[in-house]
Amino acid sequence: MTNMHTKAKTSPSDNTEISANLVEIRGKKRPRWTTLATALRAVREEAAWPFEGARNFTEWLELNAEHFGMKSTMLNTCMWMGKYYLEDLTPKLIQWNIPAPPLDELPEHIGPELLADLRKISRAGFSDTERHYAERIMMGSVRCAELRQAWVSCRKAIKKPHARGRVPAANYEQRESTRMRAGVFEAEMLSAILMHRGLLMENGEIIEYKVLHDTQQLFPDVPMPDFILVRRHAAAGISLEAIETRLRMTPEAERSGGRCRNFFDRVWLALPQEVLKSYRNTSQAFSCFDGVLAVGDQRVTIWKDSAAKTCGDKVDVLMRRLLARLLW
């Protein structure tokens, strides 16, 4: 397979077939993104420059974007996601025993936006999360918002903030290390919840939960925990439950849990399972939370639980019914 960085050919005659293919695609009203990906890759890797009045591929995209009815950035995304699917994802799908059709036979529901977020998760190093979502993408059972939320959680583990000189050099490395560990912990917890489709009890039974996404838009005036889960009960009702993730118990965690109590049916505190070993005989350590979750070994287990409230004081019944219809 041609490498993306292969030098362009030097003979003008090499452009004839590429130009003919582009003419055919431009004549279609709405060509599939996979067709565009293959054609654009040929332009980038095989065309002899200058080509169609452009000195390079970037300039060619700018000049020709309107002919394809989309922005040059989207065209570029189509090309790179075609490459990602062929060279990176397909071998993994085969290894995972997940169906991997040819690029031009991908179902309509698999678009470049989904693959773009999956590629980001892959490059962040969260292989279990990548496999989980790769399978669901191929099955058509994942929404863009859900995959984007998973990427946002993974990104916290790798993205460095701009210090802008405000953090003393002596403290920056330590503070950054703590932030990175917290980001990794949060991403691993989300991956485990999604993989098992809920929380695990100590006997191995799974309590099914769904993770809410774009919650800032749903609840603009509510204190936002790290995660919001929804559980459907046998009586056809649902509960809204919050999770605060921490590497250890702190006064700040207590305050955060207290702010959420009026808005959610249950507020959980999630801690690494090795940290919880020191709290085994401390009954009052987590009194500001309704339950405690132990995170480790790619699972989230209910470590301590108490009876849930009937409802958060400010949770609207209509919102509950609406969520029940949207999620199930």
Rank of each mutant, 00 (worst) to 15 (best):
H5S: 13
H5F: 12
K9A: 11
K9V: 08
S11A: 13
E17V: 10
E17A: 14
N21I: 06
N21R: 15
I25T: 09
R26V: 02
G27E: 05
K28A: 09
R30A: 13
W33K: 03
T35V: 14
A37Q: 06
A39M: 00
A42N: 12
E46H: 12
W49G: 07
P50C: 07
E52T: 03
E52R: 07
A54N: 03
A54S: 15
R55Q: 15
E59I: 06
W60L: 08
W60T: 06
E62A: 15
A65L: 00
E66Q: 14
G69R: 06
K71L: 08
S72Q: 12
M74L: 13
M74T: 15
L75A: 05
W80A: 10
M81K: 12
K83N: 14
L86G: 09
D88Y: 11
L89C: 04
T90Q: 07
I94M: 06
W96S: 11
N97W: 00
A100L: 03
L103H: 07
L106F: 02
H109C: 03
G111N: 11
L115N: 07
A116V: 09
D117L: 05
I121F: 03
S122V: 01
A124T: 07
F126Y: 15
F126I: 09
F126R: 11
R131K: 13
Y133I: 01
A134M: 08
R143N: 12
C144H: 14
L147I: 08
L147D: 04
Q149D: 15
C154A: 15
R155W: 02
R155P: 02
K159Y: 12
K160V: 15
R166M: 12
A170W: 10
S177C: 07
R179Y: 07
M180G: 00
F185R: 04
A187D: 04
E188H: 05
L190D: 03
R197S: 11
L200R: 09
M201S: 04
E202V: 06
G204S: 03
E205T: 10
I207S: 09
Y209F: 14
V211F: 06
V211K: 02
D214K: 12
L218T: 09
D221V: 00
P225F: 01
I228T: 11
I228A: 03
L229N: 09
A234D: 13
A236F: 11
I238E: 01
I243Y: 02
R248E: 13
R259M: 10
N262P: 00
F263I: 05
R266M: 12
W268R: 01
L269K: 10
A270W: 01
L271D: 04
L271C: 05
L276G: 03
S278N: 10
S283P: 09
D290R: 01
G291V: 10
G296V: 01
G296F: 03
D297R: 06
Q298R: 15
T301V: 15
W303I: 01
W303P: 01
A308F: 07
K309F: 05
T310Q: 14
D313L: 14
K314A: 10
V315Q: 14
V315H: 10
R320L: 15
R321W: 11
L323Y: 07
L323K: 08
L326W: 06
W328K: 08
